[in-house]
Amino acid sequence: MRHSNPYFTRRRTLTAMALAGLSLTSWAQAQGTDFPSKTITFSVPFAAGSATDQLARALALAITAETKQPVVIDNKAGASGMLSAQTVARAAPDGYTVLITTNTTHAANEHLYKKLPYDPVKDFAPITGLGKGGQVLVVNASAPYQNVGDLLAAAKKAPGKLSFGSGSSSSRVAGEMLKQLAGVDILHVPYKSNPLAITDLLGGQIDLMITDTSTGVPQIKAGKLHALGYSTRKRSAQLPDVPTIEEAGVKGYDMGYWFAAYAPAGTPPAVVNKLNQLLTRATQSTGAKAFFDMAGSEAWTTTPDELAKFQAAETQKWGKVIKAAGIEAE
């Protein structure tokens, strides 16, 4: 008859319990049932105060209120969003680092730069679309231009003398599209974010820009900037008296933008789905609705698969626009 050693029996029991614990933890993670159990970080590719930042903060507050877990904002402005995108691409695929971004990082950059430090498709797990909106063509309130026609006439009279700023690819391509369709030569001045470009526009260092409405409208309403045209084919509810750029005479002009959320590639599908649910509900929160109303944009949510397909179509569209605008990859 064999007598068991109490020491080894206890050791086997503890080992079994530990393995069971690990198994349960892994199962819970795979099912997303324990998510989130700690702080989530929203990485934002643009500066504090930008449209993407404002939306991210509204979503963060809503998710914190629902889950009781903190959601912090990590602004990594610069390099057309590449710093933030690269950070998330390299983050642990556990759902606790989320990229709140735009078409800049996930549709335009691959056509604007010869080499990216991330792959917009392979390095990410799409979560959901977040919103869509348009941009507004603005000049300093003291500028002599009363409408788009005045501005373009001045640009044609003095090729290369006027300058436009941009702090995102949406803003950049919108300006380049205006040049291409109107047949004018306007100097491009790059910025790390649209708010920084607005500062120089107010200071007279640049002559115009096409910016997201959440950045431009407060300055327009304060009387510091003058709105000449809206970038999509439908007027902004916030600026109903401002004609679209196409209405103002630039035929075929239509350039909007979109927000979306991505996790690192390899994030468990159950966690992605949980994030999808949290973010979808967050877009309907009071804070998010206030942002969309203020920005003149609207909530737009998708399934992960729908976002992947939309991104593919948008990437092709932006590629054609960038090529037609004659923008050379840097």
Rank of each mutant, 00 (worst) to 15 (best):
G204T: 08
T87S: 09
A92K: 13
V98A: 05
R10N: 12
I206Q: 01
S193N: 04
Y118R: 10
F42L: 01
A174Y: 05
Q54C: 02
G296Q: 05
L22N: 05
A108N: 13
L187A: 15
N194S: 11
E110D: 14
I206H: 01
P190K: 11
G183Y: 10
S4C: 12
L137K: 08
L14Q: 14
K224T: 05
V184G: 07
G326N: 00
D123C: 12
G49C: 02
F8M: 12
A30C: 03
E306P: 01
K122C: 07
D150C: 07
I73Y: 00
F124D: 00
I198N: 07
L208D: 01
K320E: 11
A237K: 08
K115I: 06
H226I: 05
A125Y: 05
T15A: 12
G287L: 09
K221V: 03
K161P: 02
T25R: 08
S50A: 13
V250F: 11
D207I: 01
A288K: 04
A85S: 15
S285C: 01
M82Y: 03
A48R: 08
P268H: 14
T101V: 06
I40D: 06
V250I: 04
A155M: 04
K234P: 05
I210E: 06
T215K: 03
R11Q: 15
L225F: 03
D254A: 15
D293K: 12
K320F: 04
D254P: 14
V189P: 09
D53C: 08
F259A: 10
T33P: 01
L61W: 04
G160C: 09
A60W: 02
